[in-house]
Design a protein around this nucleic acid. Structure first.
Lengths: 130, 130
DNA sequence: TAACTGTACTAACACAAATAATACACCAAG
DNA sequence: CTTGGTGTATTATTTGTGTTAGTACAGTTA
């Protein structure tokens, strides 16, 4: 059982969900560098979707440098994920800044924003499933 | 010339762009309560898109309570937008909290988060076009 | 009456996602 | 060297949704 999952009822294309899922597992270290990923056919069978869809996702992940593939051997997590983690870190900060800016621009007071930030920081670690 | 716009090159469906655009103008008060919106045919001509697409957007906006329509008269901004603004306000705070939580969960320090928040608050008012 | 308005309906087209079915080259193990 | 797994490529088909096109009808207003 791989930790990769998809939601067939979502409006988000399956291949994009796989890309996000693998990318997330790699960045969070739940998939170690050079770890062997499920084969195209095996993952397709496990998730009950077409192998071509898996292949499409894997090809894009390789293009992004998240994984690499060896003909006849399989797909593997990239050896060096430091750049990936760095860009993810930057994205998180950028997203946070944008969200705060949007709130401030709308007229929400700094006090209320600080209160929200405080709440977010104290609540962390208990709401990973949302 | 209405203040409603769309980007035909975007991957986001046109009707959804119109919904977001009108919703945004209403919430920000750039379209006053009970103000007359462009007619289906007029807006279609102005944006060079099909009237059916405008109609689809207007129908959804009415379903959401953002606008109301009078047969033979036209479409108008809702008379009371307080609930709309309140929910938008809540969404902004929720988004900000989620972004901060995500950053904290990933391991970004509180100091760095506070620095980001500070920067977002000082930069506001100068980057509305992004 | 005329010219607007919203609304409804059917048909056709375009595009992307996903499936289906093969086929071929590579690699490791027996 | 054969076998069974692997990645990869190709073509065709299906499906869903967004968009356009064209037409029609009823309400409103000058």
């Amino acid at each position: 059982m791989s930790r990769i999952y998809v939601d067939l009822r979502s409006r988000t294309p399956i291949f994009e969900q796989i890309i996000s899922s693998v990318r997330d597992l790699v960045i969070r270290g739940l998939l170690a560098p050079d770890e062997h990923l499920p084969s195209v056919r095996a993952l397709a069978a496990e998730l009950a979707i077409n192998p071509n869809t898996i292949q499409k996702a894997y090809a894009e992940l390789e293009r992004q440098g998240v994984i690499y593939s060896l003909a006849g051997r399989g797909n593997f997590v990239a050896s060096d994920i430091s750049a990936l983690q760095a860009s993810h870190r930057a994205e998180l900060l950028k997203a946070a800044e944008a969200a705060i800016s949007a709130a401030a621009e709308y007229g929400i007071t700094e006090d209320e924003i600080h209160e929200t930030v405080k709440q977010a920081l104290t609540t962390k670690g208990g709401n990973a499933h949302d």
